[in-house]
């Protein structure tokens, strides 16, 4: 009985996923093939071969709106509103997945350890993304802030290494560490512990200096102008 049920489920899934893949292929040909080639084998100097990149990469790039590329090839893709609907994304992801490569990575922030995440984030991520995930600079690129990154997107980026980001596979950042990093992004980066009041961007002395000059300096100069006299004309 159970085997029959499983067989029925199997039959239902195949056409479903096949339909998704075929729809995905259509969308791909429409919107992606100009840079990635009709067969997704890539166009030299324009767009990479997508065989072997897997659902993992496709899901990342499409959900963060980095693909379709809005800038010139070679420039840094930026996060935007996704160009496709949820169904469209699933379809394209299924199609790219069918070309081989890793699935969408599993990640469970709640199974991670926040302190381990803080440590791992400092070691692997803070150099580019800044310790509070506010984004930063490397010569040639601007590692983005992580305000909108979902745990899955964090995991995908860590594994894929988009644009000029290093790619860390599970031998270097294992599942537990990945969970912890995602937890840190969710619970610290995206909910900054601003015990001291207005966080002014969580990037340290630059906005602090602006407040010291414009707010404190401005108010105190105003005060002395009230107290003191002005020059005779």
């Amino acid at each position: 009985m159970r085997r029959a049920l499983a067989f029925v489920m199997f039959l239902l899934v195949i056409p479903g996923s096949a339909a998704a893949q075929s729809r995905g292929r259509d969308l791909f040909v429409q919107g992606c093939s100009s840079c990635h080639g009709f067969g997704a084998h890539g166009v030299p100097g324009v767009g990479p071969d997508l065989h072997g990149v897997g659902e993992e990469a496709a899901d990342f790039y499409l959900r963060t709106g980095r693909m379709p590329l809005d800038v010139a090839t070679g420039e840094q893709p930026l996060r935007e509103k996704p160009a496709y609907s949820e169904r469209g994304i699933r379809a394209i992801v299924a199609y790219i997945g069918s070309l081989g490569g890793p699935r969408v990575p599993k990640v469970e922030p709640d199974a991670g350890n926040l302190s381990q995440g803080q440590r791992a984030f400092t070691t692997y991520c803070a150099g580019c993304h800044q310790i509070m995930g506010e984004g930063g600079v490397v010569t040639g690129a601007a590692p983005p802030d992580l305000e909108q990154a979902t745990p899955t997107q964090v995991a995908e980026a860590v594994r894929v290494g988009p644009y000029v980001m290093p790619a860390f596979d599970s031998r270097e950042i294992d599942q537990r560490t990945l969970n912890s990093i995602a937890l840190y992004v969710r619970d610290v980066v995206q909910k900054p512990p601003n015990r001291g009041g207005w966080g002014i961007g969580n990037i340290g002395p630059v906005p602090e200096g602006m407040i010291a000059w414009l707010l404190a300096g401005g108010v105190l100069v105003l005060v002395v102008r009230v107290i003191g006299e002005r020059m005779e004309r």
Binding site: T73, T139, G140, G161
Partner: peptide, 24 residues
Amino acid sequence: VSMLRYPLFAPKAPSPALVCPCHY
């Protein structure tokens, strides 16, 4: 030196580099 720049798609993207976040 805590930054590695490594292009996923090499043509036209910046080449591999180790970058220091203090003065780049």
